[in-house]
């Protein structure tokens, strides 16, 4: 695996002082469609957020294209869950997609004609030209999801992190998104996606990451998406592990010992 898009090393992440990911280690190849799969509460979204730097890990680190996130932030784009915004917000489809062209240092600048063209193109690619000036509340769930994807496209990134883009989506939108994913793969983009429908994993993805607060398996779908691994991922949490997680939370205990001098 020569070209690595995402590498996580010994990643331990807590949510409200409770570990939800234990020492996760993996490498994801560039140019593939990668599914993160696991039961509810298995840390899928947390994993995506820690790749995106939105939650601070207790230990370990993530590298993207072999570099820390800060150096390659412009090459990564994030598609959050649809439920994460208030859809009554008075804003149009175009304005949301324009956010994909915002950069921290350039917030004071107006978008130029290149930006506008990219925004128009991105909206067209998800098939929402007719809705560009509509307020986002007037869209269906699947269309709303496509708005988020258009925004990510407008970022012109190389790595896309998507949190359940197929959740609550109508058939038309699902087809549109799948079509886009295929195009992105051809263009050499990497897509990492939290996914919860086991039926479609083999059809949609090249690579799969099975998670259940710990890493169960990570590899090409053909070798990693096995019955045995699925049983491990979905067969309930390991009793001792979840009890220890509970002890950590109850005692506000650190999951790494930082008292000692750094070893060299």
């Amino acid at each position: 695996m020569a070209d690595i898009a995402v590498e996580a090393h010994n990643l331990t992440v807590s949510y409200h002082h409770k570990p939800v990911l234990w020492d996760v280690d993996f490498q994801l190849p560039q140019g593939s469609l990668i599914g993160i799969v696991g039961p509810n509460g298995s840390g899928k979204t947390t994993l995506l957020k820690s790749i995106m730097g939105l939650v601070q890990p207790d230990s370990g680190y993530v590298e993207i294209f072999g570099k820390p996130l800060e150096q390659v932030r412009a090459r990564v784009s994030y598609v959050p869950q649809r439920e994460s915004v208030d859809w009554d917000f008075p804003i149009s489809v175009r304005e949301v997609v324009e956010m994909g062209r915002y950069r921290p240092g350039r917030l004071l600048r107006r978008l130029d004609s290149t930006d506008k063209a990219i925004v128009r193109q991105s909206i067209a690619r998800v098939g929402l030209e007719a809705f560009a000036d509509q307020q986002i509340a007037q869209l269906s769930g699947g269309q709303q999801q496509r708005v988020f994807i258009a925004r990510a496209l407008a970022q012109q990134a190389d790595l896309y992190l998507m949190d359940e883009p197929f959740a609550g989506v109508d058939a038309t939108s699902e087809r549109a998104i799948l079509q886009l994913l295929a195009e992105m793969k051809v263009a050499g983009k990497t897509v990492v996606m939290v996914h919860h429908d086991l039926q479609t994993v083999q059809e949609y993805f090249d690579w799969v990451l099975l998670l259940n607060t710990r890493l169960v398996a990570c590899g090409p779908v053909s070798s990693a998406f096995t019955e045995d691994n699925l049983r491990q991922a979905y067969g309930g949490q390991l009793t001792i592990l979840s009890k220890v997680a509970h002890l950590v939370e109850e005692h506000d205990f650190p999951v790494r010992d930082r008292s000692k001098k750094q070893r060299t």
């Binding site: 959050p80 956010m99 950069r103 917030l107």
Partner: peptide
């Protein structure tokens, strides 16, 4: 006028703003 974009993006979806690197 100057902070319109920053205010809008952090208000609409703080998480996405943070992902872009906006404080």
């Amino acid at each position: 006028g100057l902070g319109y974009k920053g205010l809008v993006i952090t208000t609409f979806q703080a998480e996405y703003a943070a992902a872009l690197g906006v404080s």
